[in-house]
Design a protein around this nucleic acid. Sequence first.
DNA 1: CTGCCGCTTTGATCCATGTCAATACGATAA
DNA 2: TTATCGTATTGACATGGATCAAAGCGGCAG
Lengths: 261, 261
Amino acid sequence: MDQSGRPSERESEAALPNKSAVPVSLVTIKAACSQCSLHELCISEGLGKEELAKLDSLVGARRKLKRQQNLYRAGDPFEALYAVRTGFFKTDVLLEDGRDQVTGFQMAGEILGMDGIGTEAHSCNAVALEDSEVCVIPFAQLEQLSREIQALQRNFHKVMSRELVRDQSLMMLLGTMRAEERLAAFLLNMSQRFTARGYSPAEFHLRMTREEIGSYLGLKLETVSRAFSRFQEEGLIAVQQKHIRLLDGEGLKRLLNARPR
Amino acid sequence: MDQSGRPSERESEAALPNKSAVPVSLVTIKAACSQCSLHELCISEGLGKEELAKLDSLVGARRKLKRQQNLYRAGDPFEALYAVRTGFFKTDVLLEDGRDQVTGFQMAGEILGMDGIGTEAHSCNAVALEDSEVCVIPFAQLEQLSREIQALQRNFHKVMSRELVRDQSLMMLLGTMRAEERLAAFLLNMSQRFTARGYSPAEFHLRMTREEIGSYLGLKLETVSRAFSRFQEEGLIAVQQKHIRLLDGEGLKRLLNARPR
DNA sequence: CTGCCGCTTTGATCCATGTCAATACGATAA
DNA sequence: TTATCGTATTGACATGGATCAAAGCGGCAG
């Protein structure tokens, strides 16, 4: 279904009316960090009451996106960061020759758009994998405010740094792990992130296709599918399409630490 | 020579006297951004005279490292960033099971240590690949000063963001490219970075071994060596050990853009 | 100069994953 | 209900890179 540059994605994109700079889905409901349940995951973490009020005034609007809609595209001018409120995103990079790769999946409380700061333009595409909502954080104002609020400055730096560390792990995965290790690492990571958000650690719904998982893990979709089947045979997980149950998390971890060869 | 966790590296490490927290090579010569020729590559880029003076007072000391010496290790408490003044570094991550991977090579003007901000501890090792010198930038003071100097804040954010984008490219490389494409990308990247520092774009000396290149590119050293040989046969480059001459940069670029299969 | 050691090159073989192809499944629309 | 379309599974086969092994090379210490 892929091969020639994701025709399906392009088509579904084209089918959506939102090609203009001002998306139809930009709603004016103000975000309110002070009210937000994602506190401890977001850049608002640990701020005092007064500081939260300031942050509220900065975080502009929320923006709603439908499944398959782009939050931004590679090349778009960079203006704001986005905090995922609800839903699920992927980021991907497209090479001139048509090859692309998913570089990350983002869920509630995670920040999107930091790739754009360095060049003032986004370097990847961000796409909603289900109907989603983000808080828009105008970057100039974030910098302004983080010059005033030390804790905010620190939070922001930490978020960026953790992203660097996350990238390191992904490099490690892509550079040294075999297919089944990669998938085990992926599942454990998903589980851990769902858990941190109060969902079941052992049962979840994947929002992405096998192809997207494969792209993220540097594998072909058939390899991902086979690894899922193998895990199921071995009683490590129960798979039913996108619904996953982890039956033996320890077993998955063991798979990771087993020296290759 | 690898397989069991880089014994050679460990040995050469052990041979060095510097295992203590205070390295023998910590010299007290003050760094001076205002005098530094790496301006346009470093976080001091674009600062005014007065601002540079403030930065000078912040940038603590320089620190000299001998070949194979660690600038920091995974787990070390994070206190400062380091700007490479002279020399050449690698960063690498070590998995519990002994596998490791080089996550980057750093040269003059590039910043090391940002991985530590998020957790207050470094997440990788930084090792000098030749005798080197860094400027020590105490992080708390950098944050302090970047609350005062907008341009410094902006520079720092840009440096971090560019690191994120660099990581994206590396993921792309590790996830989608074949061996020869990876090596071509690596050589072109080296050339470009040497060029930006005023060295010859077509002729340079690699400071790292084939094994380190392979680790960085997700390949085995034999594969790297074979790719070098192939490039030489095809007249793209001239290799003599670590000395590389690019004979046909365009040819290398073509290799990159050629769709695989 | 000689010998050693780390690094590199090259060859032969193996295997994990990619590729190609057929089929199955599940949701949605007609 | 049936047709359709995107997605997922499974099988057969091909292949790029890993692995194992053997020289070759160059620098450094004695």
